[in-house]
Amino acid sequence: MPERQDERIELAVNGVRRSVEVEQRTLLVHALRDGLGLTGAHIGCDTSQCGACTVLLDGRAVKSCTVLAVQADDQEITTIEGLARDGELHPIQQAFVEHHGLQCGFCTPGMILTAVDLLSRDRDPGEETIRHALRGNICRCTGYQPIVDSIRAAGAALEEGAAR
């Protein structure tokens, strides 16, 4: 049995440098939730299926239940808590509100962060592309149609924002 070893890691979380002590086996989702109090990344299936724990690691969506926290040392993390700016919702969050892209809300942080990744590559993805991108995010309430609608609307809003 390897002896327990703790390690202090530094993460740039939502633009702020944070330091947290973790066991070497600690998963990123636990470091965020228990270590840093960021409970927006949800633990759903815990087997890399449901995507509720999705965060951005250096700008790309990953499942934080399947990343060792120590592997993320010194990298940038964005959680759902980091999207709103000065009390104003991020355009993707706003679109989920307007298009009823959630019911219970459990999957929503993961859905939105996956959408951030998708829309950072393509602001006008078709329905098929959106559904393919959401393959790793499971919603058990609403069905996916309003989620897809929200992401399409968010892409258009981001495009408009960029044009302004």
Binding site: P2, E23, Q24, H30, L68
Partner: peptide
């Protein structure tokens, strides 16, 4: 579910 205790080294 969390992994069993393990040590970590970055190459």
């Amino acid at each position: 579910m969390i992994p069993a205790p393990v040590r970590y080294a970055r190459a």
